[in-house]
């Protein structure tokens, strides 16, 4: 930039500074012009990150009578109101849950979602446990990991379950983060 670096001081310095200022301004204007629309768009695109999920409440899933006395897990769809962007759905299936009796009135609710990659697991009577049809993770009847080599990082996720009015089974339905050892609800 400087034509003659040997020339000392004042004479050469102002044009160089002016030049730098000019370059800086040009860069700033360009960034502002290009960046503004991009930033506005990006902010909208990132909207899901800051949108808080509504807290899940307990949902009535079934009645006690439908659960086999012998403790065999049965899968039930979970119906609830759900908002999906612009549509409000009333009483649609939002997922499913395995319910089983551990004792006469003691229930265990397991999420059907395999904590590995999110496929639905099947209950396999012959194995007395759950098998994921995607990557073959094996779980015990109580949801525990059957096999250390299973791709799933943790046991099946238990869900809170309550019996109300003597016969109604209510479950707090939640999604949990997949692929991590720790059971963390999806925020």
């Amino acid at each position: 930039m400087q034509k003659d670096p040997a020339t000392p001081g004042a004479a050469a310095s102002p044009p160089a500074r002016r030049e730098f200022l000019k370059q800086g301004c040009a860069a700033c204007l360009a960034v502002a012009a290009v960046g503004t629309p991009a930033a506005v768009g990006t902010r909208v695109f990132l909207d899901p990150l800051t949108r808080l999920k509504t807290v899940e409440n307990f949902v009535k899933v079934t009645t006690l009578d439908t659960l086999p006395e012998d403790g065999t897990p049965v899968q039930f769809p979970v119906l609830a109101d759900r908002r999906d962007a612009w549509t409000k759905f009333t009483q649609v299936p939002i997922g499913a849950v395995f319910l089983q009796r551990q004792a006469k009135d003691k229930l265990l609710a397991l999420s059907v979602v395999c904590p590995h990659a999110g496929c639905f697991v099947d209950y396999v009577e012959e194995q007395q446990g759950f098998l994921c049809p995607c990557h073959n993770s094996l779980f015990l009847k109580d949801g525990g990991l059957k096999d250390e080599q299973s791709p799933s990082p943790r046991p099946l996720d238990t869900l809170e379950v309550q019996v109300r009015n003597r016969n109604e089974v209510w479950v707090r339905f939640q999604d949990f983060q997949l692929g991590v050892t720790e059971k963390k609800p999806v925020a």
């Binding site: 899968q75 769809p77 299936p93 997922g95 499913a96 059907v112 496929c119 639905f120 099947d122 049809p133």
Partner: peptide, 8 residues
């Protein structure tokens, strides 16, 4: 979403 598909 509630209808299992085991051939994914």
């Amino acid at each position: 979403p509630s209808e299992q598909y085991s051939a994914a």
